[in-house]
Amino acid sequence: MIGNFPFVVCMILIALGLWTLLTRRNLIKLTIGISLIESGVNLFLVTLGYVRGGVAPIYTYAPPGAKMVLPTPQALTLTSIVIGLATTALMLAFAVVIYRHRGTLDARKIRELRG
């Protein structure tokens, strides 16, 4: 079987997002990095709830007597996805306002607040 491969992929996504945050300087790119971390965590949560050979926990037209995957992680992930979208929208709004004032999106140049 595929072993823990899905978990590894989640961690790769999180690590990619962190790497983006650490090395890239464009504000929108940083937002993309945060979206990637978000995706990784969502995938991790859904993966936790999977039961081998299970079907979705919905009784409408379900095959009789089938195992079902765990519902709680899916509920958590729904919440988490909407939170992620809210965060992304707010960060992009801030980036747009910063560009309106400064004319740049380079995080190296946006450092009026220091010291």
Partner: peptide
């Protein structure tokens, strides 16, 4: 110390990590 508080977002994230 002032150099430490550089104001660069990448540094902020670095120190957090």
């Amino acid at each position: 110390l002032r150099a430490f508080h550089s104001g660069f977002l990448g540094d902020y994230v670095t120190w957090m990590v």
